[in-house]
Amino acid sequence: MTASPAILPERGPGDRLTALFWRRPRLLLALLLGPPLIWLGVVYLGSLLALLLQSFYSIDEFSGVVKEEFTLKTYAELFRAQNLDIILRTLLMSAAVTLGCAIIAFPIAYYAARFAKGRWKAVFYLGVMLPLWSSYLVKVYAWKLILAKEGIVTWVAEHIGAGVILNAVLALPGIGGNSLSTAPLGTFLVFVYVWLPYMILPMQAALERVPTTMLEASADLGASRSQTFRTVILPLALPGVVAGSIFTFSLTMGDYIIPQIIGTSARFIGLAVYQFQGTAGNLPLAAAFAVVPIVIMLVYLAIAKRMGAFDAL
């Protein structure tokens, strides 16, 4: 056996480039990171900057032309009564939707995390994932069919003799309306439906991290089922709830399709942005309105971070 060389010869440009990357690992890193960072930096951050810039412009009330000079006038407009109304209504709806999602999501997430095994685990996983990824518009559309006055909800209510209850609910001021598809209650229902999977997944992730041994320990120490639930499971699930609420809150706040199609067409932030930039042609005010959810979400994220919600993402 003749000894082979200790150092193998360089074979072509592939080896030369490999050697270059090996000698200068930062070069490879820069080549990998360059295109995506340029894209995100220019397209996305650039756009956000443009948004911010736009929000400091104002619109000339007579000509309707955007005046490109710095002013806080547009932000001041946000504090008009009708605009504050929009912001408040949005916050209220976002909070209600988040709460609704948390309540409905919990049993699903808890069951999937603690009891579902094997085949059922897959059923639950797909059962949440498919609605999450299915077409948003199709889901909204489905609810328009369901909530219509002549639709399935009314039909079922009448057939089980609950038509009276439905009418009583619809007669409630503030949440009722002509039919569910034109009532704030309808808007709420659809929001809950559409964002529910976003609550289930982080909740389930948080619950899956509760070791079974911890529950057994709690039972060993003499805790009843409901005590274990209250004192062990709920606190441990909380970061998951907060993580999920980031999505449900943020998504509700920015949505403008659902309130447009289902409900009283009372304006929410998203709808205001959409209308101001579109039909009203008031880009600066639309931009200023878009900054509101950013600020609210930043505050929300800061609070969530302190509650340890990011570990559950």
């Binding site: 996305y44 756009s47 956000l48 443009a50 948004l51 943020s250 998504l251 706040m253 920015g254 949505d255 403008y256 932030i269 998203g270 942005v273 959409y274 930039q277 639309a286 931009a287 878009a290 959810p293 950013i294 979400m297």
Partner: peptide, 9 residues
Amino acid sequence: LPGVITGMA
């Protein structure tokens, strides 16, 4: 961030 922000931006 909500899609409306990305869109508006």
